[in-house]
Amino acid sequence: MAFIEAVMQYGFLQKALLTSVMVGIICGVIGCFIILRGMALMGDAISHAVLPGVAISYMLGINFFFGAVFSGVLTAIAIGFVSQNSRIKHDTSIGIMFTAAFASGIIIITMLKSSTDLYHILFGNVLAVRSSDMWITLGISLIVIAAVYLFYKELLVTSFDETMAAAYGLPVRFIHYFLMTLLTMVTVASLQTVGIVLVVAMLITPAAAAYLLTERLWVMIFLAAGIGVVSSIVGLYFSFTYNLASGATIVMAATSIFVLVFLFSPKHGLVWKTLRVKKKRASLV
């Protein structure tokens, strides 16, 4: 309960809480499309690829949001270009491009001699969220939620059956890059809460847990957002109370929820599935 009192009392903790709740929501929402399209690796790639953009933004003294979106989207385009124009498979292309982007980011930051910043970008430091960061996160959240709400139909059909979508005239390539842009924005918003290295966990772990709980996409989206929020709050609590890195505690909270769902999901849970099989076999003896 000391945590609740502290939240009431300290402005920095309120900002941290609001920001991480918003991040939990949008990571869950976008994460659903990422895992259904089989793009978990792409999520990891884009999150690493924002590093050089962030570094250059620092160098130029502009908001890191712009640089990050730029380098994230550029990397997504480069990945697509290599895999479409050679026999290199998509996952290999992802591996080449994002490590290149990440490496160049590390070099730039090291040249700027700012290793504390590097540490915070890599691992997150939600307790240092400034008001301006919170507002950017709010802006990104509104854009992402509005985009998914308005283009739900198009996102659903291109994720489920891209060939049919193309056959009736949807610009599937454009929709792919549109989703990559949203993904980059979500990554940027998550930088301070969980850090570059662990963003992918917030994208796929809550969505994967939700995937095991329902057979409807919109339900999956709401569940993933909910699981993201719970993970953020629980993670922040442990981070604050035991003075641990916020990214790590938030991700561990999400992982714990995933493990529970994996075992006990009513339909797909390992425990019930095993019990059902046992019962059936016993009845046939």
Binding site: L36, G38, L156, S159, F160, D161, T163, Y211, T214, E215, R216, L217, V219, M220
Partner: peptide, 10 residues
Amino acid sequence: NDIDWDFPIT
């Protein structure tokens, strides 16, 4: 076989 039959859709 071009379809993902595990997709969450009824």
